[in-house]
């Protein structure tokens, strides 16, 4: 079932140098229960896009329908009612510092007109759900970044929304806290069947929790698909750069160049494994069947929500013709091969 449908959406801002197209003819369908990621550099329009999903921004043209509410059209109390079903968490948490953890989580319930007794009960459940037991009466200033985002998540879940929007929700957190918050989001997605839309500039976040991803550049969606497919076979230049953030650590290029200088003979080859192919004893067979030496330079396996994806950099050397045969052999094993440096 479609939970979010964005059709021919444009957002144009007037500026001194004429009009700026922040979002340019975007079409997206997001299914119920899906974790959908939008990745792009700053200024790509992803923030404007996500803010149109709860009516914080209105599209200049096109329609946005979320949980059967035409968010781009409704106003006033109807929009406010709809917003209780489409909650949002933020990069800078946006908690009320004058309220304790408990009071912050209670805030959206007060807005929804929930009775005091019901509120207390619901807040207790939420505190348990996000793992903030013992911090109920602390003020935001006494919490760490990760704890603040947990309050943000609990607050967002208070009115049992259908959709959770995450606006760079982990960008202000350190890597370990980011992972813990991402795990919490996956857990919530599985337990509550919540549809999650997140925007980020970190491929790590997409890789770790998203089912599908859209890549945005200059207001347009340039590439979209299941995360594993995009990892396996990135089409656009920008997508390749994002994928490299995860699969190829910075030092890879340097290592490759260094090795190539040291062993000018042979070839440096990048192998990409997807899913089960990662489990085959490919290298063993390669050495047994061919008269070559294999030098493993670097390897990495990344787990995504749709399966695992691995890359391995190896250096092959041997008699003329034998290296080419070896590469052809790898090709028959459904493993991607790309020659990076030629001897």
């Amino acid at each position: 079932m479609t939970m979010i449908s964005i059709k021919k959406v444009q957002k144009i801002y007037p500026s001194q140098k004429g009009q700026v197209k922040a979002v340019d003819n975007v079409n997206l369908e997001i299914n119920e229960g899906e974790i959908f990621g939008v990745i792009g550099y700053s200024g790509a329009g992803k923030s404007t896009l996500i803010r149109m999903l709860n009516g914080l921004e209105l599209p200049t043209e096109g329609t946005v329908v979320v949980a059967n509410n035409e968010v781009s059209k409704i106003k006033g109390s109807k929009l406010r009612k709809a917003r209780q079903e489409i909650s949002m968490i933020f990069q800078h948490f946006n908690l009320l510092w004058s309220r304790t953890v408990r009071q912050n989580i209670s805030f959206p319930l007060e807005i929804a007109g929930v009775s005091k007794r019901e509120r207390a009960k619901r807040v207790d459940e939420l505190i348990k759900l996000v793992g903030l037991e013992g911090r109920e009466d602390a003020y935001p200033s006494q919490l760490s970044g990760g704890q603040k985002q947990r309050v943000g998540i609990a607050r967002a879940l208070a009115n049992n929304p259908k959709v959770l929007l995450c606006d760079e929700a982990t960008s202000a957190l350190d890597p370990q806290t980011t992972d813990a918050i991402l795990d919490l989001l996956v857990d919530i997605n599985r337990r509550l069947g919540l549809t999650i839309v997140l925007i980020t500039h970190e491929m790590h976040v997409i890789r770790k929790i998203c089912h599908r991803v859209a890549v945005m550049e200059d207001g347009k969606v340039v590439e979209m698909g299941p995360v594993l497919d995009v990892f396996k076979n990135p089409q656009e230049e920008i997508t390749k750069r994002f994928v490299q953030q995860v699969t190829e650590p910075e030092e890879t290029k340097e290592t490759t160049r260094h090795l190539h200088e040291k062993y000018p003979e042979g070839k440096v080859v990048q192998l990409s494994f997807v899913g089960e192919t990662a489990d085959q004893p490919l290298i063993t067979e390669l050495i047994r069947k061919h008269e070559i030496t294999v030098n493993i330079l670097q390897g990495k396996i990344s787990y995504t929500q749709n399966g695992s994806y691995g890359t391995l950099f190896i250096h092959l050397d041997g008699p003329k013709g034998e290296v080419e045969k070896a590469i052809a052999f790898i090709n028959t094993h459904q493993v991607g091969v790309e020659v990076i440096a030629n001897g």
């Binding site: 709860n54 914080l56 109390s77 406010r80 009612k81 709809a82 917003r83 209780q84 909650s87 949002m88 933020f90 800078h92 946006n94 908690l95 009320l96 805030f107 959206p108 007060e110 807005i111 929804a112 607050r155 009115n159």
Partner: peptide
């Protein structure tokens, strides 16, 4: 951001003034 967050939760103007 705090005002916007409360609006994203469905707060009306009265809520924003008296609760935020």
């Amino acid at each position: 951001g705090v005002i916007e967050a409360s609006q994203s939760m469905g707060a009306n103007n009265g809520h924003v003034i008296f609760k935020v």
